[in-house]
Design a protein around this nucleic acid. Sequence first.
DNA 1: CTCTGATCATGT
DNA 2: ACATGATCAGAG
Length: 444
Amino acid sequence: MKFKSEKELLEYTKDIEGKTFKEIDSQHLLDTANLRRAKGLLGHVVESGFYKYPLNNDSHADFEELDIELKVTGYVKNKNGSLRAKERLVLSKIDYNQIVNETFESSHVLGKCKKMLIIWYEYDSNKEAKDFLITHYQLYDMENDLKVFNNDFEIIKNKVLDGKAHELSEGDTSYLGACTKARTSSDRTTQPFSDILSKPRAYSLKNAYMTGILREHINSKVITLNKYNTVEEYVKDKLRPYFGKTQVEILEKIDGRKYSEKIPKNISKMISDELIGKDTELPEKDEIFSKTSFIIKNLPIKENGKPIERMSFKTISLSDFEEEWEDSFWKNYFEETTLITICYQAVNNSKNGFRVLKNVKKISFDEYDLDEFKKTYDQIKLAIEKEDINLLPTSANGFKNQLLEIAPKGVKGDNAYENFFKNDKTKVSFMISKRLLIDKLSDE
DNA sequence: CTCTGATCATGT
DNA sequence: ACATGATCAGAG
């Protein structure tokens, strides 16, 4: 079937809403396939069954005459009813040897994926794939976020130019990710400015971005112009007037109160909440926040720039460890998230409250980090399996060169590690080790 | 000092 | 009432 115009294509596509894959599978692809791991199969079903296209693997856009690429992707319903993309959307492969000669405007990925018809279905772990329900479709155009894409593209390109393709991480960028794409985990490829072999990667629209555009589509929200290319840029902009000032000075400037006596323990957090915004308010402040996964962090550092503390993350619960690492929440979390770290320097070993706003650092995790984190994850699985507190990878009890630790959390009188094994009373969280932080902060 | 379990202040 | 982000504080 050929379409003469976008309008015609969209008109035809209307009928797909409300259908399950089984209902449109006129080529009976679902009958023979062994589901579950058959990636891309649902896309093929839509392509051949609904649009009556012969299956192709060439590099042309699916609706070639319109330069529109077809993408079929899932979302899940959160407990509170909101929707969230199930996965990142993988675009074309990154050719490390080519990217260095490209701009985003001239790139292969933009050529193929600038406009996409995205078909959304509701993923439901209790259903078989053939029964997933298609509920939305949208014509998506990268043009709307071109500034951010350009910036992301340059970040990826620059890493390759620096001979650091092997250090790429999805957390490096805002919307356009460089996700791993290998047939096997040992698959490696060359890069132009280093002899180190690198994991093959593909461009992707990051999970948080997909969630952003889905929600935008459903709420038909008016697109607010976004002023910033990265969260880091936003944060630096907001903090600009305060660099070189102490925490107490900054807070006094903001709220007019004096803090000479008792310093609130969370003074850095009070400042970042006020100047940058509380996490829940951020999506309204700038579009960049509703389409990226990031965390604003505060960190005290010494005069030599090294961290004074480890960095903590939210609590972990038993159910987080049911999956294998590859499919786990935490792998995805560390893979995709960017930590925007506001550093306060302890000049003359000054105490909390009297440290000076020094800089803002971006931290993301690469393959090496994730492989190390896996060890911690697997160790926790083991501890759970054996129900043995002593096996938990704490910093004291863990293994050598551990980058991800677990640490207690809670209130006075808690017995944190004991509680971890009682699902409903989690009192344990992840912390990344100082060693890793030192490494991350000294980058550049 | 560093290490590491414990605890605080606040938000939801 | 409990999770979160972050610092505190005793041991060594």
